[in-house]
Design a protein around this nucleic acid. Sequence first.
DNA 1: ATAGTTATTGCAATCGATTGCATTTTGGTT
DNA 2: AACCAAAATGCAATCGATTGCAATAACTAT
Lengths: 355, 355
Amino acid sequence: MGIKYLTDGHRGMANVKMSDIASLAGVSESTVSRALCDNPLINEATRTRIKKIAEENGYVLDLRARNLRLQKTGTISVVFPLLHEVDSGISDPFFLEMLGHLADELAERHYDLLLHKIGPGEPRGLIDLVNERRSDGVLVIGQSTQNAVINELATRYEPLVVWGAALPDQHYLTVGSDNYNGAVTAVQHLVGLGHRRIAFFGDKTLPEIGQRYAGYVAAIEQAGIAPNPALECRVPFDRLGARKAMNGFLDQHIAFDAVFAASDLVAIAAINVFDQRGIKVPVDVAMVGFDDIMLAAAYTPALTTVRQDIGQGAKAMVEALFSRLNGTQAASTILPTSLVIRASCGAKMLQNKSA
Amino acid sequence: MGIKYLTDGHRGMANVKMSDIASLAGVSESTVSRALCDNPLINEATRTRIKKIAEENGYVLDLRARNLRLQKTGTISVVFPLLHEVDSGISDPFFLEMLGHLADELAERHYDLLLHKIGPGEPRGLIDLVNERRSDGVLVIGQSTQNAVINELATRYEPLVVWGAALPDQHYLTVGSDNYNGAVTAVQHLVGLGHRRIAFFGDKTLPEIGQRYAGYVAAIEQAGIAPNPALECRVPFDRLGARKAMNGFLDQHIAFDAVFAASDLVAIAAINVFDQRGIKVPVDVAMVGFDDIMLAAAYTPALTTVRQDIGQGAKAMVEALFSRLNGTQAASTILPTSLVIRASCGAKMLQNKSA
DNA sequence: ATAGTTATTGCAATCGATTGCATTTTGGTT
DNA sequence: AACCAAAATGCAATCGATTGCAATAACTAT
């Protein structure tokens, strides 16, 4: 006699299934199924024997079959604004960092991560995705301008969590940073350095940016400075549009001594445009960004910015989603931010003023 | 009488299945199945009738069931070096751009994209992924140091395509840029500008970087310059390590007038470190990068770099993978690169020389 | 009308797992 | 030895689609 093995074919990967293991072990499929998931109904001895056989024959269960039977997918969709067209997109490193953390959190729960890109012109994408029921839940990173679509969807689809700003009439769970207070802190910092004419760079029609703008205004006013609409530069997301907007702003020759940029990417682009026109950061103008992407620290000059804790954010999103899946109540979360001070807004201005 | 509808429950999403449509239409499931996939066996009239009923009742087929039956998954795994730990990782924007393009290519072919993060310390991850057969094929972005594992896997698993350098004893298909010639062009450009003491910044133990290094050496020698090992700075991937390596290089006070950085990220970090020590790019030192990530153009100074066509790369990878899935032969691909000249290595040096 | 085609449709098995219930085996008790 | 409870295992239905083959309906030509 001797131990029987299933020979795996030429392709190397034998298509071993549960019934094969069952016959090898001389038991029924039910027993194998139960043994493999440590069901206590099965005798300790048989259980280990079966497991050993399964192991030796390289058995792995077929998730399609299991999920079909269990009526689930074992998958979470992550919807992502992946914009990469030359003229319409900047791959924000912030998203990649978020994605990495989400991948971790989901892997820990043994869920797969199905990635869906969604472009600016395809609002149906999200709806279809849900209709096809390929996943047990959906995480949306960045509602940007789609919040109407998302909101409509949310009224009939529960397991949906969105990264971004919490808005008033919102039916869906959000996890996001405290944009308002983050902005307040940033602007207060600039004020503390002696800056008075602080420009706002960003597109405040986007929900998150709108909140940052509100914080900017509040901090300005609180410092006793009159908000000046001329100091606002509406910077779109695409690179060319951004440069154009910034150059247009500079062409107006409005005096300003600092910029609060709505994201690090905007800040970086601004520094670049300024540089080309001979304006040096931080010597001539102080600059604060938002996000603290990895590159913020590596930029020249290193960027002072409002840090969002992406790891926490990812964790909160996944937790909220699984609460919904389990029927537990869960509330939207607003995560605290912190100001990271680097070279892009040195203390020089303060010294100038006091001198 | 009147048309019958399946009422969808409170949750909004009715769980309509094919058998429901069958009874509504008064036909068998087989007929519905065939009608929905435009099988010509089915009468034109019934086909449209069934489709209409399916549409009205919001029917969508269950992919698990279909895939189980068809013995496939409809999914491609994308394995991704998502490193985000503070001390071990930089999220290279290059990867996100690639990911976006892959998402497009796969979506076009109606395949889902399953994302798997793989950390530096988990070589088994890739193997397990394949064993679990959750996807019909695997795309690996960046072999980095894992090529031994990948190679072993490739001997028994066919539908595998890797982004990266083509290496001698490789059993797997690769798609990658022409690292060698890209580097040659970059260095020739520096030479043409009059630079003689060109440093190499990067970790040449990684396959892709190794090829770029080879190109660097070749171009140097071809210009009649003796390669100087002291001009090589081995820059690791983590930020702190990178800074340390660069500072160490500067501490040796070896004269150099230009840097060929193995990636844009390295170039960016280098400019930053140089700046902190009073070395200005491009005034004091010229800098060329590799990749042409979005940020290269937005950096200050804008980065001269070797552009990789990521869109083409993604396309080639997916095409190669599907060839394998269809049993067609496919060969590894090497994509051409192009040099993008920007501010980081201006023509100043040349003028200095000729003056 | 009738046999012979051809165009449609249905039956039933199948993909690979899970699980309620029935059944067998084992062990303990008197 | 007989019986009962408890432990271990097996049977068979099920998840929702696809498809070879059989069966029926609709025509065509004689």
